[in-house]
Design a protein around this nucleic acid. Structure first.
Length: 273
DNA sequence: TGCCAGGATGATG
DNA sequence: CATCATCATGGC
């Protein structure tokens, strides 16, 4: 992979395919917005950047080579060989057509608390509104960065709030769930980083100890932030899509299958393949 | 106005 | 185990 410092940005190339628009706005992360110049603006790991697709790669604004190596390569999952993974599906007409239609959607590696909290908010909700609630959460309780954007508030900060104070989110019945998650995470009762070393089953069980976290929210958190690529479809929409694609069950090679939005699916493959 | 939204939960058949 | 009402809002 090539990482080059240009005059006003860091240019990345040589990591394979990625449909940046879908990757950043398909419902796996909720903090990216495209500005009038076609640059995606977002914040993660306490840093704010701009991202733009470029010929054969992408450009990152507001960062530097070290930070790109330390934070953003991991965030965008650039070290995983998606081309190789996709090649394993070359005989699968369903996956092939999905990829032809939508390109490669990369699985982002978000901060665990942010992902957990975001997917609790996503319960029975739609993407524009989820983004609105998450945005108010950050603006109300996150830290303001130089460029005017906000960090995602820590579990400690949220745990210190009352239900009344969280009413500004307009998150409805999800507020008590957010508080329960914040309390369990900030107190150490649930150790999110520790979940990484558990088996998939134990990791899922652990997350489901939180009120408002069922299998769907747990699996999304495992997949989009904790490095678990082997997560099977759970909600009725995904289930239906899978049933349509694979009436006889998922093929063996399909070690992971995570999330459905509109007409495309995310796919990823477990490291041990 | 009425219906739905990428869910979880607890109570019933 | 399947189904169902309920939860609180906003968008269309």
């Amino acid at each position: 992979m090539d990482i080059i410092q240009l005059a006003d940005c860091v240019a990345l190339s040589g990591y394979g395919e990625m449909n940046l628009d879908l990757t950043l706005d398909c419902g796996q992360a909720f903090r990216w917005n495209k500005d009038e110049n076609g640059i995606w603006r977002g914040t993660a790991y306490g840093k704010s950047i701009g991202v733009k697709a470029a010929d054969g790669g992408m450009e990152i604004y507001g960062s530097n080579v070290n930070e790109v190596k330390e934070i953003w390569c991991g965030y965008f999952d650039l070290d995983r060989d998606y081309d190789k993974i996709i090649a394993t599906f070359q005989n699968d007409v369903h996956v092939r057509s999905a990829i032809e239609k939508s390109g490669t959607v990369r699985i982002l590696n978000q901060e665990p608390w942010e992902a957990l909290c975001s997917f609790i908010i996503s319960a029975c909700n739609n993407i524009p509104r989820i983004k609105g609630i998450v945005s108010r959460l950050c603006e109300s309780f996150g830290d303001r960065l130089e460029d005017g954007s906000f960090t995602f508030p820590s579990a400690e900060v949220i745990a210190s709030k009352t239900e009344e104070e969280l009413a500004v989110l307009r998150a409805g019945y999800r507020v008590p769930f957010i508080l329960d998650a914040a309390r369990k995470v900030s107190s150490g009762e649930i150790d999110l980083e520790g979940v990484r070393s558990l088996s998939e089953e134990d990791a899922r069980k652990t997350l489901m100890l939180i009120n408002g976290v069922g299998r769907k929210v747990a699996d999304c958190t495992l997949l989009f932030s904790l490095g678990f690529a082997s997560v099977f479809p759970v909600d009725r929409h995904i289930k239906r899509a899978c049933d349509n694609l694979y009436p006889n069950g998922l093929p063996e090679c399909f070690s992971s299958f995570a999330g459905l939005a509109q007409q495309y699916i995310f796919i990823a493959q477990r490291e041990d393949g």
